[in-house]
């Protein structure tokens, strides 16, 4: 392996290809996570991955790292349990917006309060893809899905507002902005406290094609045109991606586990 392919050491290459649909953005995020791991040279010996349920929840299986497959929505408290039991481990949660913000939303809220020193990477594809395309917590207002035939009546979750006032790390990025995504993930991993990366990624098969996109490339180009980078801002506008980082880093530890 050379410098460009060194990230593959974090993957179980014999399990590839992934089960994701052609055009899915999840593989892009998965690769970028590995590149961030590689660039920080995270030790395999000290890194574990926790996943929830859904398309994104399948990610953990492809890492050559110790991992836990949890119940739907419970990835964050399971990850916290691991961190409390072994503070030396880097604990990374990889899951989707339905898992983390929908069924697991209450756990997210309280993990923010506890500021547990773990990293969460959220594949936010605006849809429940694995089950065929139902409305999810990040689906924009008005969008038609299998369960919102007249358009989504609810507002999408404004995740950044949960983080802003609690001294935690929040970043929003997209599957188009690869270098930006890598930077967000690396900063999140290095943050001493609770960190969350919302990676906007495309689901062409169970969402995009119903919205009129011809292929996933069109969705990527939409990210390119729609989103502007605005790092270290106080607040991100709807069409902005960037990093909101607290000034104070406070890694929560319940007590010494020495």
């Amino acid at each position: 392996m050379n410098k460009d392919t060194n990230f593959k050491r974090y993957l179980k290459l014999d399990l590839l290809p992934t089960p994701w649909c052609p055009g899915c953005g999840n593989g892009i995020v998965l690769k970028t996570i590995c590149q961030a791991f590689d660039e920080l040279n995270l030790p395999k010996n000290g890194t574990v991955v926790v996943s929830g349920i859904g398309c994104a929840g399948r990610s953990a299986g492809y890492f050559d790292l110790d991992s836990v497959h949890t119940a739907h929505g419970r990835a964050i408290p399971v990850a916290e349990g691991i961190k409390y039991a072994n503070d030396a481990l880097n604990v990374v949660v990889i899951s989707g917006d339905g898992d983390l913000l929908g069924i697991g939303g209450n756990h997210l809220l309280h993990a923010i309060r506890r500021n547990t020193n773990i990293t969460v990477i959220c594949y936010a594809n605006e849809i429940y893809g694995m089950t065929g395309g139902q409305v999810s917590p990040t689906t924009p207002h008005g969008t038609k899905t299998l369960t919102t035939p007249n358009g989504n009546q609810d507002q999408p979750a404004d995740v950044q507002s949960l983080f802003k006032h609690h001294n935690c790390y929040y970043a929003r990025t997209t599957a188009y902005h690869l270098n930006h995504m890598k930077k967000c993930i690396m900063e999140a991993l290095e943050f001493k406290g609770f960190s969350f990366v919302e990676a906007r990624t495309m689901c062409i098969v169970n969402n995009g094609r119903r919205l009129g996109y011809k292929n996933s490339n069109e969705m990527l180009l939409h990210y390119k045109e729609f989103y502007k980078v605005n790092d270290y801002a106080e607040e991100l506008a709807q069409n902005e991606i960037g990093i909101i980082k607290s000034v104070v880093e406070t890694g929560f530890k319940p007590v010494s586990t020495d």
Binding site: V68, R74, P77, Y84, P254, S256
Partner: peptide, 20 residues
Amino acid sequence: GGAFIQAESEIAAISMVHGS
């Protein structure tokens, strides 16, 4: 020197047990 957490719900508590 152990960990005590009053979790946000019974579901969170059993999930933390799962992790530890």
